[in-house]
């Protein structure tokens, strides 16, 4: 999948003035087959909006202002998702090519519906004429692959333990073997023991080839590094750094990435030595971002140029990308 210069804004009417929230503002990235990409950034930087753009699930007040989202498939012509109608997306793309586990979904299943009914609803949303037995059998097979007993389909969500519930949600999102799964902060609301279990389940469906690629979204770089092969760092609607997980962790380039790493509190000697730190200040108001580099009000290295001109993405060491004046010669 390829994203080119994607801009997705929320347009709101506040009183009589239009407020435009530039949630995703010129993002380009490539998601390759077989890859697990981690997207890291603070709350409000546009991660969920980007997830919706990748799905092309765009509804007012969100509008796609600019950009291309291309989906490639083997032996077929590439599809420009932004040209498809919602109806076409639902029929051809969602669930089959690209699926999402929305933020906070792991704890949210309709409590009054049997799992069986939830499965049928999901399957019918893709194909209204789907055979019910076929649908349930598909689910049962998927459940078994993830270690859920067959009778789970006849239970209510509240009868399941936390771990079973998360397995059910992940199974249902992946019923149709999508090639790409987007997991939007799947672990952020969970305790660490459950977080690890969810990461394991995701690794499980990935290594069983039920899905081919994952976009894993989180504000916690320590969580992302456990699962992602490549990390994308987002700040105020833009990508500021991208690279292989090992490169980014061992040698972060962008001052914001450095700040994120420095604020993580894990029980490790490296962290103990540097002590409790944090990034000062707040992310900017996305309807009125600062000029120049959007990180400059919080950046310890900010120079004059940073306040005036926006840094462009540059390539470093072959396969690393960073948008920061520290890395631009001249």
């Amino acid at each position: 999948m390829e994203l080119h210069n994607v801009k997705a804004y929320y347009r709101q009417l506040v009183g009589s003035t239009h407020r435009v929230v530039r949630a995703v503002d010129g993002v380009g990235m490539t998601i390759s087959e077989g890859e697990i990409i981690g997207i890291v950034g603070e709350s409000g930087c546009g991660k969920s909006t980007l997830a919706n753009v990748i799905m092309m699930n765009i509804r007012p007040p969100l509008t796609l202002v600019d950009g291309i989202v291309k989906l490639y498939s083997e032996g077929r012509e590439a599809v420009d998702l932004q040209r498809l109608s919602r109806e076409e997306l639902r029929r051809r793309i969602w669930g089959k090519e690209v699926a999402i586990i929305p933020q906070a979904a792991l704890n949210a299943l309709m409590p009054t519906l049997k799992i069986r009914k939830i499965i049928l609803d999901v399957m019918k949303s893709h194909d209204p004429d789907v055979d019910e037995d076929y649908a349930i059998n598909t689910a049962v097979r998927r459940f078994r692959e993830l270690g859920l007993p067959e009778y789970t389909v006849n239970m209510y969500p509240f009868e399941l333990s936390g771990g079973m519930r998360q397995r059910v949600v992940i199974s249902i999102a992946n019923l149709l073997n999508p090639r790409l799964l987007i997991a939007d902060e799947p672990t952020s609301a969970l305790d660490v023991v459950t977080q690890k279990m969810v990461l394991k389940i995701l690794m499980d469906i990935y290594s069983k080839n039920i899905i081919r690629s994952i976009v894993f979204i989180s504000h916690d770089i320590a969580t992302v590094r456990q699962i992602a092969s490549r990390i994308v760092i987002m700040y105020a609607g833009k990508i500021v750094e991208e690279g292989s997980t090992e490169d980014v962790i061992t040698h972060p380039l962008h001052p914001y990435t450095d700040g994120l790493m420095n604020s993580v509190l894990t029980p490790e000697d490296e962290v103990k030595r540097r002590g409790v730190r944090f990034i000062p200040g707040q992310p900017p108001d996305p309807s009125n971002p600062p000029p120049g580099c959007r990180f400059h009000p919080r950046c310890p290295y900010a120079m004059d140029r940073c306040r005036r001109e926006e840094p462009r993405m540059v390539q470093i060491d072959g396969n690393r990308l960073v948008a920061c004046w520290l890395y631009t010669s001249k």
Binding site: V192, V193, I221, T223, R225, Q226, T266, P267, V271
Partner: peptide, 26 residues
């Protein structure tokens, strides 16, 4: 507690905390 956990459960809790500089083995 962190360096010499007494209880099995403390160890499990500790292993669940994602580490920044070390990748878990899956």
């Amino acid at each position: 507690v962190v360096k010499h956990p007494q209880h099995e459960y403390t160890r499990k809790l500790l292993e669940s905390v994602p580490t920044l500089y070390r990748k878990w083995r899956w």
